[in-house]
Amino acid sequence: MKKIGVIKTIHDYNTIIGLETTHPLVSFVDFSKVKTTTKREVEALSFGFYSIFFKEGKNCTLKYGRNNYDYQEGSLIFIAPNQVVSIEEDGLDYQPNGFALLFHTDLLLRTSLMQGIKDFSFFSYNVTEALHLSEKEKEIIVDSFRKIDYEIAHSIDKHSKQLIVANIELLLKYCLRFYDRQFITRDNITNGIVEKLNHLLYNYLESNKPQTIGTPSVSYCASVLNLSPNYFGDLIKKETGKSAQEYIHTIIIDKAKEKIVDFNNSISQISNELGFKYPHHFTRLFKQKVGITPLEFRTGS
């Protein structure tokens, strides 16, 4: 069974890498100043706080599940609390030759970012989904790190928390912008995502999977397309203007319309063929999307 090292607090992490804890809830790490050890007892790590790693070198391998992070020179990964990240066996290979920003959820208490953190869905991205930065973007990210580091090192006063959290939020907003750019420029991931989804959904709805599994879910589609649900959802939103769930429902309803015009199919039968557990669930969704019930659509009333 895989040995997982759990690092619960910022102080625990700082102690492991030999860094003094200046603030108990947030830490900036410059790995060029950190001494690594030569042997690690665990195969994976789980942090009890948010972690952002910026890698400049190419000697780091991080894994999620069986796959390597798409984590190359000049890239960022975002790790949510309690997410398990695998590491290689050769010492502290999980430490990038760059920087890290670590912050605990408690830092966000009574701030706007406490509620807004859920909007930064990249904390739930996984394999092949790191943020790759241009030279100009790297400058902005490093500058943001440095500003946060300055506030951490500054004597704590009544402005400290507000300024630290404000700079973290600004950093995350820049990352949202850069991901939007990446969705457009990284064709190997985004190219034809809607077409691939359409093909997947039409094949699914033509099979017996709806009767055995149910209606196609966002998680199912993301898994088949080898994407995390959040990354998949963000891609579909950028391409179609609809959430992944809304888009899937649109395809289901289009398929339903094809079946409804065939009078040999009862509404209950169509509902079952499309994977709905109960006919009234199908009727409710159909009316929500079309404005009339399936029966009214069939009769033209």
Rank of each mutant, 00 (worst) to 15 (best):
Lys2Glu: 05
Ile4His: 08
Gly5Tyr: 05
Gly5Pro: 00
Val6Cys: 12
Ile7His: 08
Thr9Trp: 04
His11Glu: 11
His11Ala: 14
Asn14Thr: 00
Glu20Ser: 07
Thr22Gly: 14
Thr22Leu: 15
Asp30Gly: 00
Ser32Asp: 13
Lys33Phe: 01
Lys35Ser: 06
Thr37Asn: 05
Lys39Cys: 09
Lys39His: 13
Arg40Phe: 11
Arg40Glu: 15
Glu43Asn: 10
Glu43Met: 07
Ala44Gly: 13
Tyr50Pro: 03
Ser51Leu: 12
Phe54His: 07
Gly65Thr: 10
Asn67Tyr: 12
Tyr69Leu: 09
Asp70Gly: 14
Tyr71Leu: 05
Glu73Gly: 12
Gly74Pro: 07
Phe78Glu: 01
Ala80Leu: 02
Val84Trp: 05
Ile87Arg: 10
Glu88Met: 13
Asp90Cys: 02
Leu92Met: 15
Leu92Val: 06
Leu92Gly: 04
Tyr94Met: 09
Tyr94Asp: 12
Gln95Trp: 07
Leu101Glu: 03
Thr105Cys: 04
Leu109Met: 11
Leu109Glu: 15
Ser112Trp: 04
Met114His: 13
Gly116Phe: 11
Ile117Pro: 05
Lys118Met: 11
Asp119Pro: 01
Leu131Phe: 08
Asp143Glu: 05
Lys147Ala: 03
Lys147Asp: 05
Ala153Val: 08
Ile156Gly: 06
Leu163Tyr: 11
Val165Thr: 13
Leu170Thr: 13
Arg177Asp: 04
Phe178Glu: 09
Arg181Thr: 04
Thr185Arg: 12
Ile189Asp: 02
Ile189Met: 10
Gly192Asp: 12
Ile193Lys: 00
Glu195Leu: 09
Asn198Glu: 15
Tyr204Cys: 09
Ser207Met: 10
Pro210Lys: 01
Pro210Ala: 10
Gln211Gly: 05
Pro216Ile: 10
Ser217Ile: 11
Ser219Ile: 13
Tyr220Asp: 03
Ile236Gly: 02
Thr240Asp: 04
Ile253Met: 03
Ile253Gln: 02
Asp254Leu: 03
Asp254Pro: 00
Lys255Pro: 00
Glu258Trp: 01
Phe263Pro: 13
Asn264Gly: 11
Asn264Ile: 01
Ile267Arg: 08
Ser271Gln: 10
Ser271Cys: 14
Ser271Glu: 02
Gly275Asn: 07
Lys277Asp: 10
Lys277Ser: 14
Tyr278Ala: 15
Tyr278Cys: 03
Pro279Asn: 12
His280Asn: 14
Phe282Val: 08
Phe282Met: 05
Arg284Lys: 12
Gly291Asn: 10
Ile292Gly: 11
Thr293Ile: 07
